[in-house]
């Protein structure tokens, strides 16, 4: 599903050049549950952005569902993001002017789907996440956990193949964080490929496959034998 080969990414920071990614080789199958851990500045967010087509590699190749994404133009990359990738961010990134329903609806709006169809899908998605009675609330009228679940609804409404979560619990208390992780894991069980970037070992340890990054390189990539199937218990 995802194949990275020799992916490099450098940023100029002041006078120096920071190697955010160094020769990343990575294969990920559909429906996997991955966590990417590592100290800050280790390149885990850059890798996530790369996987979500928000960033392009300086060298190397990235094949998503068999398509060489580096050869896609800006417009087609946007289309892949819209249709195949869902993002969940630490700071939710809900549009403050719009109600929960309208926020969830945004990807459908961008895709030009008819209003009648949109309404049904928004309702369905909010219902699945237990937010149906919050649909007319603005983000500032929602709790942190609710906000993140609205964001997850938005990330999944296009039924993407991949769900990318960058520190999804970073701004939440423990209980809300737990809820959000469970929501994400439920979606993973339904078949979505889930990748969570986190520095919290407790959350990272729940994934079935754990990646460790240091200085832009993957130093450890192993199946989580002890926790495998933990979500069933």
């Amino acid at each position: 599903m995802i194949q990275l080969q020799g992916v490099n990414r450098e940023f100029p920071v002041g006078d120096e050049t920071v190697h955010a990614l160094r020769g990343i080789d990575l294969d990920i199958e559909a429906g996997e549950y991955l966590s990417i851990m590592g100290p800050s500045g280790s390149g885990k967010s850059t890798l996530l952005n790369m996987l979500g087509l928000l960033d392009r590699p300086d060298s190397g190749s990235y094949h998503l569902e068999g398509v060489d994404t580096t050869s896609l133009n800006e417009e087609n990359q946007a289309r892949v993001r819209r249709d195949r990738v869902g993002f969940v961010f630490q700071s939710f990134h809900l549009v403050p002017r719009l109600t929960a329903a309208a926020n969830v609806e945004l990807p459908l709006v961008l895709a030009g789907i008819e209003p009648a169809q949109r309404k049904a899908r928004v309702h369905e998605t909010l219902e699945a996440l237990g937010l149906e009675n919050r649909s007319d609330h603005r983000p500032d009228q929602l709790s942190g956990g609710q906000r993140q679940r609205v964001a997850i609804a938005r990330a999944t409404i296009m039924r993407p193949a991949i769900l990318l979560a960058d520190e999804p619990t970073g701004n939440l208390d423990k209980r809300s964080g737990e809820e959000v992780i469970q929501t994400l894991e439920t979606l993973n069980r339904q078949g979505i490929l889930l990748i969570i970037v986190t520095h919290d070992p407790e959350i990272g340890g729940r994934a079935k496959r754990m990646l460790h990054m240091v200085d832009g390189a993957i130093v450890d990539d192993r199946a989580n034998t002890e926790k495998a199937g933990a979500d069933e218990t």
């Binding site: 979500g52 928000l54 800006e74 417009e75 946007a78 289309r79 892949v80 993001r81 819209r82 249709d83 990738v85 993002f87 961010f89 700071s91 990134h93 549009v95 945004l106 990807p107 961008l110 895709a111 938005r154 990330a155 296009m158």
Partner: peptide, 16 residues
Amino acid sequence: TAEVGLLMAIGARKQQ
């Protein structure tokens, strides 16, 4: 600015 970034992340094209 952050909203623009979000829109791009959920698949808005530059033109939109």
